[in-house]
Design a protein around this nucleic acid. Structure first.
Lengths: 132, 132
DNA sequence: TCTATTGTACATGTACAGTATACAAGTGGC
DNA sequence: GCCACTTGTATACTGTACATGTACAATAGA
């Protein structure tokens, strides 16, 4: 493996905001359990250098994740991964997820991804979630 | 049902651009097959009034869908749904879909949606895609 | 205590989203 | 054919968000 494993990657050319890419990407990594509670995340300056952006951009992303309860963020200390087992109920979150999922699939179909591939991906992910 | 069935709905308070919400929402409707080729979509002014936005905002959304091949757009005539069966292959589209899907699921989990619900939704959608 | 490290606050440049307004291109009745 | 009307388009303008530059505050460690 490469000397320093990149935590994630961003597309500077994308129309999607970089800080939002960092939030989404890191959140996926955290949900996947690739970090244990107590683990240190790269400092805002370290990750910023890796990604080629300004450290304030990374800081903004870390702040969002901290608000969501994923990180403990303090100056001088860095970003520490939290436990976050509390599953707070969300009324319209389910509905929102369903709609976003439909929209994502519609986009993929428009982009020419075969429906069978899409179905396979989702079935596989659903299976993984079920046994977790 | 209400006298006029709303084609879709947007959240003006969302940080997500309205025109992008219109694109995603309409694309999902089109993929779902709720319109036949040749059907008329609401005029940009009509839909704009329904949604409470400016007609130029709707026009921008229609233009994106027209570029994707979903609509035939001409002044004086309105927006007509096209056939669009051609499935153009996309190399990185599959990979992009997979990543976006993971991120969407991570967001849902963060929002407190039970993993079982997420898995059920995806399994159901996958099944529907498979038999289509 | 002193210094380096780390996150934060604020101001600035730039690009994009949404709107107001005027225009061009079709449609349909006469 | 003419003319009013409808529909999408183009341009200018305003507010806001993204990303950055720079300085600051708080913590860690020697």
């Amino acid at each position: 493996m490469a000397p320093n494993t990149p935590v994630l990657r961003v597309d500077l050319a994308s129309d999607r905001p970089v800080y939002e890419q960092i939030v989404s990407g890191l959140r996926a990594v955290l949900v996947a359990g690739e970090f244990e509670p107590g683990d240190q995340l790269p400092t805002v300056r370290q990750l910023a250098t890796d990604l080629g952006v300004h450290h304030n951009t990374v800081a903004e992303a870390y702040r969002v994740l901290a608000d969501e309860g994923w990180l403990d963020l303090r100056r001088g200390r860095g970003a520490v991964v939290l436990d976050r087992r509390e599953a707070k109920p969300s009324p319209e979150a389910k509905q929102g997820f369903a709609r976003r999922l439909e929209e994502l699939v519609a986009k993929a179909i428009t982009d020419g991804v075969p429906r069978s591939k899409i179905a396979d991906h989702m079935a596989a992910l659903a299976k993984k979630l079920g046994k977790a």
